[in-house]
Amino acid sequence: MQIVIIFKSVTYAQRAERILAKKGITSNIIKAPFGKNAGSCAYGVRISDKYIAPACDIIREVKLPYTDIMVKQSDGTYRGLEL
């Protein structure tokens, strides 16, 4: 299952990607699905669902604010995920 942590700008998403990589978590940057908080034009880091909990811990630890966490459903749409 693919999960996307959404940030308010591409620079924040890039920072998250680098920080997660340093901690051994692989992610990749995508143009974010239309998030209710970020609006359009946001960017996110896509990660495997098994890493979502440690990834969120790392991102919170470095005080990098994210706006949404979304999960891609089988019909191709995204829904918000509460952690």
Partner: peptide, 8 residues
């Protein structure tokens, strides 16, 4: 345009 917060 900044590519961020575009709905605002």
């Amino acid at each position: 345009g900044t590519g961020s917060n575009s709905g605002d």
